[in-house]
C-alpha cells in the first residue's frame, strides 16, 4: 500500500467517526427502548473508526512524516507544523480517549436516566467538534506542505 493511500485513510476514518458520532447524538436526542441498541452500536462504531484513524495516521506520522516536517518548516507556512501539527497530534490523544469513553457512556442507563442521556449528548458533541478541528488542522498541514513545494518550484 502506498504511503499516500495510508495518508488518505486517516481523514477518511476520521470523517466516518465524526458521522458515526453525529448518529449517536441524534439517537440520544430520541433515546428509547426502540433505538437503544442502534445508539450503542453507533457508539461502538464511532470508537472503532476513531481508533482506526489513530492507528493509520499514527503509523504514517511515525514512519513517513519526517520528510514533510522538514519541508514544511523550511517553507512559507512553518506554523503548519509548529502549531497545527504539534497541537493536532496531542489533542488527538484526548479525542481518542473521548471516543473510547462514548460507548462506555452509551452502555449506561441512557433510556432510564436523563443524566446519562445528557452525558452521551455532550460526549458525542465533543467528539464531533474535536474531530472537525482535527480535520481542519490536517488541511492546514497539507497546505503547509503544498506551499512549501510550490515555493521550491519558483
Amino acid at each position: 500500500m502506498s504511503k499516500e493511500l495510508i495518508l488518505m485513510l486517516h481523514p477518511t476514518f476520521g470523517v466516518l467517526a465524526i458521522i458515526a458520532s453525529v448518529w449517536v447524538f441524534v439517537e440520544a436526542l430520541n433515546a428509547s427502548d426502540a433505538n437503544i441498541v442502534r445508539l450503542r452500536n453507533a457508539s461502538v462504531l464511532a470508537a472503532i473508526l476513531m481508533w482506526s484513524a489513530y492507528i493509520v495516521g499514527g503509523y504514517w506520522y511515525v514512519v513517513f512524516y519526517g520528510g514533510d516536517k522538514t519541508l514544511i518548516k523550511a517553507g512559507p507556512w512553518p506554523f503548519a507544523h509548529s502549531f497545527f501539527m504539534e497541537t493536532k497530534e496531542h489533542v488527538f490523544l484526548m479525542l481518542l480517549l473521548l471516543a473510547t469513553y462514548l460507548p462506555i457512556a452509551a452502555y449506561g442507563e441512557v433510556v432510564k436516566k436523563s443524566a446519562t442521556r445528557n452525558l452521551v449528548l455532550w460526549t458525542s458533541a465533543l467528539v464531533v467538534l474535536l474531530g472537525l478541528a482535527m480535520e481542519g488542522a490536517g488541511a492546514f498541514i497539507s497546505m503547509g506542505a503544498k506551499v512549501a513545494l510550490l515555493a521550491n518550484q519558483i
Binding site: F83, V91, T116, N118
Partner: peptide, 26 residues
C-alpha cells in the same frame, strides 16, 4: 456524581487540556 457535575468535569477537562496544548504551541 450527578450527571451535570460529570458533564461539567468532562467538558471542562476537554476545554482546559485543549487550551494548555494549543496555548503552549502558539
Amino acid at each position: 456524581m450527578t450527571g451535570n457535575a460529570l458533564i461539567a468535569t468532562v467538558v471542562g477537562a476537554t476545554v482546559i487540556s485543549g487550551a494548555i496544548i494549543a496555548g503552549y504551541f502558539i
